[in-house]
C-alpha cells in the first residue's frame, strides 16, 4: 500500500481533527463491543449476568464457564463440552487446507506458465464456483457423499471444502505467478528442466507469501463454515461452528449465557489468533478475492 494521499497536506483545523478522532474511536468501540461483552461475561457467574449489567466487570471472577464450555457442556446427546468438536474441526481443516492449497498452486502454475487455448475460460469456470450459493449443491452432494460412504464423516467434509475451495486458491496462485518472470521458466525449459522440476526449483521457492495468504484464507473460511457442517456431518464429525450453534440454541435447562460466551470465544479463537499473528496476509487474501491483485 503506497501512501499516495498520505504525504499530501490535508488542510484540517483542530476542531475537524478532533471530530475525526471522535468518530474513528466511536467506531472502534462499536467493533470491539461484542467481543468485549463476550469476554467480560464469560468470566462472570450466571447470576451476575441475568442480574443486570452486560458491560460491568464481574464482581466474582471465574473460569468455570470456560471449563464447562470446553469439557462439560451438553452439546447434542452427551455432555462432552466443545472439546471433541474442536478436534473435529482441526481434523477437517488441516487436510482440506493442505490439499486445496497444493491443487491451487499447481493450477496457478499451469494457467500462467503453460498456457493453452481456452485456459481463461476454464479458470473462469473454476472461479465462478467460489461464488455460487451453496444451496444449489446441497441435494446432489448429500447423495454423492452417501453413495461413496462419506456421509457424516470428516473426510466427506474435507472433500466438500477442497472442491469449493480450489477456485480461490487457484485465483491466488494464478495472480501471483502471472507476475513471475516467464523468461526464467523458458530458460529452464531450454536447459531441459521438466515440468515439475521448474515448479519445484523455480516457482515454489518464491511462493512463500502467497502460500501464507492461501492457507490463512482457506483456514478461516473452512473453520468458519456452518452450512456444509450442518448439512453433511453427524455427531462424530460435527465441526465447532455447528456444535456452538447446538449449544447456544439448546432449549433444555437453564440458559447458561456465560458458558455460551466462553464457547463462542473458543470457536473464534483459532481464526482470531491467525488474524492477530498474520493479519497482513489475511487482508491481502480478502482483497485478492475481490479486487484483482
Amino acid at each position: 500500500m503506497a501512501a499516495a494521499t498520505q504525504d499530501m497536506v490535508v488542510r484540517t483545523g483542530a476542531v475537524t481533527r478532533t471530530l475525526i478522532y471522535v468518530v474513528l474511536l466511536l467506531f472502534a468501540l462499536f467493533y470491539l463491543l461484542p467481543l468485549v461483552v463476550m469476554l467480560v461475561n464469560s468470566v462472570k457467574p450466571l447470576a451476575e449476568i441475568t442480574g443486570g449489567n452486560m458491560i460491568a466487570f464481574p464482581d466474582v471472577w471465574t473460569l468455570e464457564p470456560w471449563r464447562k464450555a470446553w469439557s462439560e457442556a451438553q452439546v447434542g446427546v452427551q455432555a462432552t463440552g466443545l472439546k471433541p468438536y474442536f478436534w473435529n474441526s482441526i481434523k477437517m481443516v488441516v487436510p482440506a487446507v493442505t490439499i486445496s492449497t497444493i491443487l491451487g498452486a499447481l493450477n496457478g502454475y499451469v494457467l500462467t506458465k503453460w498456457r493453452f487455448r481456452g485456459d481463461t475460460v476454464l479458470f473462469g469456470l473454476m472461479l465462478f464456483a467460489c461464488f455460487i450459493p451453496f444451496q444449489i449443491v446441497l441435494i446432489p452432494m448429500a447423495r454423492v457423499l452417501g453413495i461413496f460412504g462419506l456421509a457424516g464423516t470428516t473426510w466427506g467434509l474435507v472433500v466438500v471444502h477442497v472442491v469449493y475451495g480450489i477456485g480461490f486458491t487457484t485465483l491466488y496462485y494464478r495472480n501471483y505467478y502471472a507476475a513471475f518472470p516467464s523468461e526464467l521458466v523458458r530458460a529452464a525449459q531450454i536447459d531441459g528442466a521438466s515440468f515439475f522440476q521448474i515448479f519445484w526449483r523455480i516457482l515454489l521457492p518464491s511462493s512463500g507469501p502467497i502460500t501464507v495468504v492461501s492457507i490463512i484464507w482457506q483456514f478461516t473460511n473452512i473453520w468458519n463454515d456452518f452450512l456444509f457442517g450442518a448439512s453433511f456431518a453427524d455427531f462424530s464429525s460435527q465441526p465447532m461452528t455447528v456444535a456452538l450453534n447446538n449449544l447456544v440454541q439448546s432449549s433444555t435447562g437453564v440458559k447458561e449465557y456465560n458458558v455460551h460466551f466462553a464457547g463462542a470465544i473458543l470457536a473464534a479463537l483459532p481464526t482470531l489468533l491467525v488474524y492477530i499473528v498474520a493479519g497482513r496476509y489475511f487482508v491481502r487474501g480478502l482483497m485478492a478475492g475481490s479486487v484483482k491483485g
Partner: peptide, 25 residues
Amino acid sequence: IYLYPMALSFIVSGTAWKWMLDPGI
C-alpha cells in the same frame, strides 16, 4: 480493529449479537 470481525464465524457474531440485543439480558 475495524477489520477483525471479518475473521469470525457468522455463528460466533450471531451469538454475540443475539444476547446483546436480547431485551432480557
